[in-house]
Structures are given as structure tokens and as C-alpha cells.
Write a protein that binds this DNA or RNA. Structure first.
Lengths: 151, 151
DNA sequence: AGGTTATTGATAATGATTGTCAAATAGAGC
DNA sequence: GCTCTATTTGACAATCATTATCAATAACCT
């Protein structure tokens, strides 16, 4: 059975307090900075638990760190991430959910999890970059996105 | 200036030959298995370069590995990947393409690339595991996949 | 061909994450 | 309130992918 420990509460609370995404390492550091003697392994375990029961979201940052965020809504959603400034927009995607489940089932796959994220340049970064990135933006024109960067 | 070495060609070629996503480690192992004495660090560097100039896609697998794929084929598709045996099924997803473009546009994002992959257990691996993984598979029933692994 | 300099590769270093296991403790039952 | 026991914790070791180091090599310009 699951026990309620102050450590678990502590992780849950501070994750909710952060609001956005944070790495396990950073959350541990924040807790320690706040005077808590919580252990690093416990933070990892708790975050993994929270993610497993749906109380937290997790995603892999581009440099391979796992990031977590309190998932107040309980809603499952995906992210639209600016690959320049890191701004993140949450997007719901009922159509994608059902598509993923259907495709997995059609191919005999079970316990399907999907990775669905969209990376792009947010309006602001695109504006700022347009003056200096001519060659690059020509190569990666919007129309070519599917062929080049899309996965 | 960029120099053309057989190592670079080798990585480029075998990545294209693979067709799907592969980790740097796995690609290195494949090259070595094919008789090439290429170094691991070189594979990492070359893949990072290819990704930087747009000749390769990269994505983070759920367990934190970086996966790469050649993106010159012109054909854009996604993957259904068995997280146990690695079997990969290519899946087309016209509906997801248009969804991704629409969502990005609605939020002012340009040059949008999407990461859409489904990880699961293929029928065969699920069968083999069912005898020993009862508790686990009950905990991670198909219906719970969205809450647990999806991002 | 010769010289410059980017590239390579063996290995060490890094950094995140997970495994280990004895000690602490939450919660059930008395 | 007190005991008991299974769960949880935490310090530390182990693991794994990735990156840095740096001497040796090899591409490319002239």
C-alpha cells in the first residue's frame, strides 16, 4: 500500500509551486535550498511515481534531461515547444490520442505510449531571427518542414 | 571548413540505410559489426553535425536516449517501435501531419517539425512477457498508457 | 609534394539516473 | 498509546549515454 510521507508531500507541493517544468536534479536542489534534508534518490522515485499515477507530466528536454511538471488538470496533453527560447504551449489533442491507440492496436502493439511534440520557432523568436538567419531560414522554409525536420 | 572523410560518409550512408531511428550507440555497433573501425566519439560527433545541418532528425526516446534518422528520403512517416525487441513499423499519418501544422500555425509557430512516435510492446514480446509480468501488465493496462508514458 | 589545420579515436571525465541495502517509519491491529 | 511489519528512505555505488581531452592522422589548398 502507498504510504504518505512528508517527503512525498514535499515533492508534490514544491512541484505544484514551481508551475512549470523542472528537472529532478533542480527540484532536489530547490528542496534542499528550502531547508529540506530530502534525498536525491527519493526525489527521483517520487517524481517517477507521480508521473506514473498521472499527477505529473514528464518530457525529455533536448539535452536528455527528464523534466517534470505538476499536472493539476489530470488532463493528458502534448507540447508545442519553441526550439529557440524554450517557450512551451500546452496542446490538447484528442484526435491524436485516438489515432495513436488505433494505430498501435492495428499493429498488435499493447501498452502503447506515444511521443507527440511539436518543435518550431515561436512568433517572437521567428521575428527576431528573420533578419540574421536568411540562409538558414531559406533552407528550412516552412513548406519544407515536413521533409526536413519533422519526425 | 568541412572536410569529407570516409567516416562521415560511412555514418551518413548507414544512417540512410537503416531508414528508421537508431541511437548513436546502436549505429556505432552496427558499423563496427560491418567491419568499420570507426570510433564511438566520431559517430556521436557526426550525428550531431548531420542533425545540425538538417540532414538528420533527432528525437529523445522515452528513456533518454537520443535517436537519429536520415531525413533525405523525401518520404515523411512516423514509427511504431517495440520498446522490448526494437522492431519498428513505419506508419503514415496524414491526419497527424495536418493536425501538427494547424496547431503550430494557430499558436504562431513557424518552421514546425513534429515528433510523433508510438512506443509499445509488439504482439510477440507481449506474449513472451505475459507469463512473468502479470503484476506489471495489470498496473500498466492499455487504458492507462496515456497517463503513464505519453508525452 | 608540403604545410596547415580540421578530424579522428582511445580514453578519461561528466552528469543524470537507477540499484543496493541497512535504518527509519507509517499505518494497521491490539 | 504501543507493537509489529512491510514500505519507504537515503547515502553511496553502479550504470549508461554523452562529451571533453589531446596526440596522431589525414584532407585540402597552393
Amino acid at each position: 500500500m502507498k504510504r504518505n510521507t512528508w517527503q512525498r508531500e514535499s515533492v508534490r507541493d514544491s512541484l505544484a509551486g514551481i508551475g512549470g517544468f523542472i528537472s529532478a536534479q533542480a527540484l532536489h536542489a530547490a528542496l534542499r535550498a528550502g531547508g529540506s534534508p530530502i534525498g536525491l534518490a527519493t526525489v527521483y522515485r517520487t517524481l517517477a511515481d507521480l508521473a506514473a499515477i498521472g499527477e505529473a507530466d514528464s518530457l525529455q528536454s533536448p539535452d536528455g534531461e527528464a523534466l517534470y511538471r505538476a499536472c493539476s488538470s489530470g488532463e493528458h496533453h502534448h507540447h508545442l515547444i519553441c526550439r529557440h527560447c524554450g517557450r512551451t504551449v500546452e496542446i490538447g489533442a484528442a484526435e491524436v490520442e485516438s489515432w495513436a491507440q488505433r494505430v498501435a492496436a492495428e499493429n498488435g502493439f499493447v501498452d502503447a505510449a506515444h511521443v507527440v511534440d511539436i518543435f518550431g520557432w515561436c512568433a517572437q523568436c521567428a521575428d527576431e531571427a528573420s533578419g540574421v538567419e536568411d540562409a538558414s531560414s531559406a533552407r528550412r522554409a516552412p513548406g519544407a518542414a515536413d521533409a526536413t525536420g519533422a519526425v
